[in-house]
Nucleic acid binder design. Structure first.
Lengths: 219, 219
DNA sequence: CGAAAAATTTAGATATAACTAAAAATATAT
DNA sequence: ATATATTTTTAGTTATATCTAAATTTTTCG
């Protein structure tokens, strides 16, 4: 199978690709992966040699079908382990990301199928992200990020795009939790920050925070 | 913390030391770890530099107090994960070793404490080995290996010294399971093989197999 | 004891995955 | 359109953990 480093790159590229549509650039991968562009170039060549990505010098990359499937397997493992940590071991949603980053690289098909069964085949992880099944399929989870919403619209907060403990702890501090109803009150034209309202309070969030909060049933 | 390679060496040295008493030799480590003696020498120097082992050229090694504690932490993790795999995920005892070899290297103190609690603080793993607590302490589990027994003596089979799937599958095939009462019928002076008897059948095992079966209440 | 055998260490190489600094290609902007 | 800035790649280095082959030390035994 693939090395941990390779699996991490696949996951990063998958995530960037699905948020971007188009080809993913070397620098973007480097910043997400906390490495240098030169390291990314090296790895892209390796992934291309293994037919995991389509790569043309200076033109960015995108995953091949094999790459996409491999990425989804890693993501499936990550999200199942996160579910395990929260549901069975009583971790909080902001504590599981780094541990799951390690667990996701454990090699065993049987293990992950048995874990899935033990957890009763969950469809969403603790951050509201859909868990791919063994074939890479997910339930459709039509959400809108706050940054794409208009003034006056509202929805239910069902997921985050950044599940780092830093970001989740910020949400905890601001009293924002999955399930909350959130309404967009105003958008600052100057810096793009959002004034939002929940059932209990109002607050201002930056544009970049708004890009990481996913809402459902937005009207 | 320590690298996976370092942790694996610590575990190997710990196991050899506790079965041997004396200093552990380079070649012995190499054969247990499936590497070459030269690789072992390199690693021993590294471990010595980190104060994990006492090492003198050509004289073998033994763990320092720090090394012993570190080894016990890895062993604790390994055995807790094995218990999880068998008790919660319904793996068989011969299927868990390789997966636990991977899981044991996941870095998180909290994780292992929560796992321990989830499993209700088990004292023995699925192979009958005692699980060290957070301080490295284990219940005393006085057992005798068959190879140390006399003709006519008998006891209850409570543990194995080799928990590789190959060995455990051999035991399955020979219909030997934890809890069985085993009696030594005869010892071949020629090759040291043992004729043993359970409640249901008789069989002959080699000396090396006899060295890996642990019995309790031997009389 | 001293030669042969066995065990161990050293020296030098390899693979992975990172890095820095310099070079090359692409994009931007006057 | 051409100079400048940005992005990306290349070249060369580093660290980890292996390996083989040769050298060295220890052990064994006639």
């Amino acid at each position: 199978m693939y090395s941990q480093a390779e699996e991490n790159y696949l996951k990063t590229i998958y995530n960037l690709e699905s948020r971007q549509g188009s080809e993913v650039s070397t620098n973007l991968i480097a910043s997400k992966a906390n490495t240098k562009a030169s390291s990314v170039t090296d790895m892209l060549k390796k992934l291309a040699a293994k037919n995991l990505v389509q790569y043309k010098k200076y033109q960015g990359v995108h995953l091949t079908e094999l790459g996409r499937k491999s990425a989804l397997k890693v993501i499936r493992k990550h999200r199942l382990w996160e579910s395990f940590l929260v549901q069975k071991l009583n971790f909080k949603w902001d504590e599981v990301h780094d541990i799951a980053e390690q667990l996701e690289h454990v090699k065993s098909e049987v293990l992950i199928e048995k874990l899935d069964a033990f957890l009763k085949y969950p469809k969403l992880d603790p951050h509201g992200d859909p868990i791919p099944d063994a074939h890479g399929r997910t339930i459709l989870n039509k959400t809108v990020v706050i940054s794409a919403m208009k003034i006056g619209s509202a929805g239910v907060f069902v997921g985050v795009r950044d599940s780092s403990s830093e970001f989740l702890q910020y949400l905890n501090k601001k009293n924002l939790a999955l399930g909350d109803r959130i309404k967009v009150i105003d958008i600052e034209p100057f810096d793009g920050s959002f004034h939002i309202e929940t059932r209990t309070h109002r607050l201002v969030i930056t544009k970049s925070v708004a890009e990481n909060l996913c809402l459902k049933n937005v009207k």
